[in-house]
Amino acid sequence: MSSEPVISLQNVTKRVGRKTIIDNLTFDVPQGEIFGFLGPNGAGKTTTIRMIVGLIAMTNGQILIKGKNIKTEFEQAIRHVGAIVENPEMYKYLTGYHNLIHYARMVPGVTKERIDEVVSLVKLENRIHEKVRKYSLGMRQRLGVAQALLHRPSLLILDEPTNGLDPEGIRELRDYLRYLTRTEGITVVVSSHLLSEMELMCDRVAILQRGKLIDVKPIEYFTKGSDTFQTYRIEAQMPEQAIKGIRQMAGVQEIKISEDGLIEVTTEREQIPDILEELMRNHIRIYGVQMVRRSLEDGFLELTGGGQIG
């Protein structure tokens, strides 16, 4: 196993006219990682993915897939890539099987046995000889995964793979991805505007906003937050009155009342007993205290400075 990244973007820039759509993107993804690409709609996720697979030409910079330049060595580079760009659009008038034959013919070395293998991996054995027109969205998505895996790619690229999938389909897809990274050492780059989804799927997340890379962070960063400050929810009587007293206290970073009438206070753990004591001293009745697990959303908002999310 080499330490060479499976995919490497170096100063990738896309300009259309005067508008810079993608601005100087640089990052590497090592083997076996599920790498998330996160950003609001219009941030440039799809454009970046299309540049990675050579559908869109870049203005500057280069993209290397297993060391091969996607621009100058397209055929050698793309050989390692399996992808679904946006929805898996198949030939509806062909059967699922013929769709796979179509793509199998385009890559040397894909045997009939391999087609069958992939079909059973995505559990389409019973319906593979039906026309794609009759497939449900979930089945099309699975056929999409099948065509992407046919030629045993080292890099799987999925653009908004869960668009239009039901929760069951999303869970299934997630399981595939985990299975593939574990058993075949495949590397996955996946884009989404849905934070919650990324949280469950990815090892690392790159955050893109208005064509710029804001940051690349391991997923734990978003879910655990900083070590010292945490947010707690306190269910208490007369919250408006209650927060007046607490706001002045040392160690309280932020305090507000949530939509459902709970006090949300961001502070250090050691401050909690003092806050409760303060409330009780003011004869405010307390019904519960709970630590809030930070969501990717919060981390995202923090990184993007509260910018709009999808």
């Binding site: 299309r50 793509y103 385009m106």
Partner: peptide
């Protein structure tokens, strides 16, 4: 139909 996206990401120029 959008199938062009899957057609052009194969090792065929």
């Amino acid at each position: 139909t959008g199938t062009i996206k899957l057609l052009l990401i194969r090792p065929a120029n």
